[in-house]
Design a binder for these strands. Sequence first.
DNA 1: ACGTTTCCTGAAAACGTTTCCCATCCGTGG
DNA 2: CCACGGATGGGAAACGTTTTCAGGAAACGT
Lengths: 334, 334
Amino acid sequence: MATIIDVAKRAGVAVTTVSRVINDKGQVKEETRDRVLAAIDELAYRPSPAARSLPRKRAHAVSVLVPFVTHPSAVARVQGIVHGLRKTDIPVTILDVEKPAHQSEHLDTLASSYRPEGAVIISLVPSERQLARFAEVELCPVFIDADIPEFSRIFIDDRTGGVLATDHLIGLGHRRIAFIGDIENGSFGFESSAKRHQGYRDALRVAGLEAESRYQRTGPHGSDISRQIAHELLTLPDPPTAIFASSDTQAIGVMEAAKEARVKIPTELSVIGFDDIEISAYLGLTTVRHPLYESGLIAAELVIEHIRDPSCAPRRVEQELEVIVRSTTGPPRD
Amino acid sequence: MATIIDVAKRAGVAVTTVSRVINDKGQVKEETRDRVLAAIDELAYRPSPAARSLPRKRAHAVSVLVPFVTHPSAVARVQGIVHGLRKTDIPVTILDVEKPAHQSEHLDTLASSYRPEGAVIISLVPSERQLARFAEVELCPVFIDADIPEFSRIFIDDRTGGVLATDHLIGLGHRRIAFIGDIENGSFGFESSAKRHQGYRDALRVAGLEAESRYQRTGPHGSDISRQIAHELLTLPDPPTAIFASSDTQAIGVMEAAKEARVKIPTELSVIGFDDIEISAYLGLTTVRHPLYESGLIAAELVIEHIRDPSCAPRRVEQELEVIVRSTTGPPRD
DNA sequence: ACGTTTCCTGAAAACGTTTCCCATCCGTGG
DNA sequence: CCACGGATGGGAAACGTTTTCAGGAAACGT
């Protein structure tokens, strides 16, 4: 492989000059520049990323820290990020967080050793110490799903989303409305389900409805568990006429439980989810649309902006929510 | 940030020794080792990836070269790869190929400058020259979807898959069976659709059925285009009673067209797809199951194997295909 | 007692860039 | 004719590791 030294020799200049040409630093006469460019071409020279990162102290990459890459919502966001970054030549590196321990481990790696040019952190909130580290090393991560004032972030108002979903059900005439969500205070510190739950309670209160605890259940994320919970709900003496699941994945579990119990949707049971993941449209699931792919796209834009101008101010992007009415919700029968 | 030199000083040894400890190279007395480990701990030292890559001439990463990350089949495979690699501390970098030009560009980068420890290349076949480059720099990529003898690869027999799908339809009694596939000889050199098409023709021939050209259509990948094609097929004077789409994405387009044309599935039209992507189960689509996620998982295993033992022989993994009968296929009405 | 091996350790040369700082050249105004 | 300044170019010191090579100490057999 040709190195910068070979190019310099061939062009009859110093390596400094070649470096300046490669990095478009100016200070090089047109003619010299052409000679260097020619030499680069002839030798098919490509700068070594590793060698560049060393003195620059930053890896030419954008790291994406994402819990549970398999979750459909994570997938959509990562796609958005990859697509948004495609216009640049920056590779995307995926750091999957599957256990709580991974989280701070990866966060430390990002700030202390790997040092990418940019980073996107999804659904995770670092500790104060880690936040300070980021600032210290001038890494400006973009956060998705966490409203962290010191950095750019893009997020939604989960509580309002919960209100929206619940209001839709109330508006249809439902009175016995159940909620199924994730475990609150889980080890990852996710808060969206808890906030959607809060929105549910608020909406009920405003409508003068009591939020009965037997209608509010939480469990580990996943459609299987949610199916189980929905089954319990449906076999209650006075089962709910509508269920708000804090994610589409869970709503799908509810639909499965209803099918097994031969409970007709939406005539006997209304179901509303949250997120609008890809499958939801096919399933006809009524849900609160959460612009997931777009959030990735925007995150990519912000990362690019921060790379171009490291000193630019943090931006705050709140995405709009909207309920998408499809065929799993309707008025209660009685 | 502490460097290896700081650690060496603190432990009262030479950097060489610290390096040996970090890399588990042995040759270090227990007691010295402990001192070094203690120093590392006290200084919270983390080796710099960039600095390591330079003399090692390899980046600590596995690169995944994948065309169209948004395609559901690509998503499943990437997930498999990420999961398979999670047991190691190797980050995954995604190289998205969206235009034919990206392909050789990324391939060159991989071999010539970036030089990851491992790579997996999905659905792409590099030129002879590029293959030679890989061997030259001792990068052993793992191929998915391409049977390249010089390297490890994991793939399916697309032609047989086409036969399987078509036989299923023939077995149900269909005679007028259409095929919808991707453009053949596209600029990326994908061959799976063409091979599945070949299987379709072979199966018809064996069954003594004529493969009529008006029943065989190709177009750019995507459910919209496929919907359009299916629409044409369904408005033929003697429309097919069954359609084999060379991917589930296309089969979904067919289902949409049928719905629009008020053609009942499976009574008036049978539809079979290929791949068994995630949504297919929800849609009840009969399809040929292609173990996508597993292929990623296996690819990760092979990459790990090659990293551990760079001289190990290339492996060849052919995955089994199976038709999953769901509710979009049935006997023809007449 | 003396070579020989084995084990452990260290010095220093890579690895391929970037960048700070200095030298030269040329034109310009005094 | 001289000093000056901007444009252009180069030398060499980082950046933080790995690795080759050599050397010293300890253990071993004779």
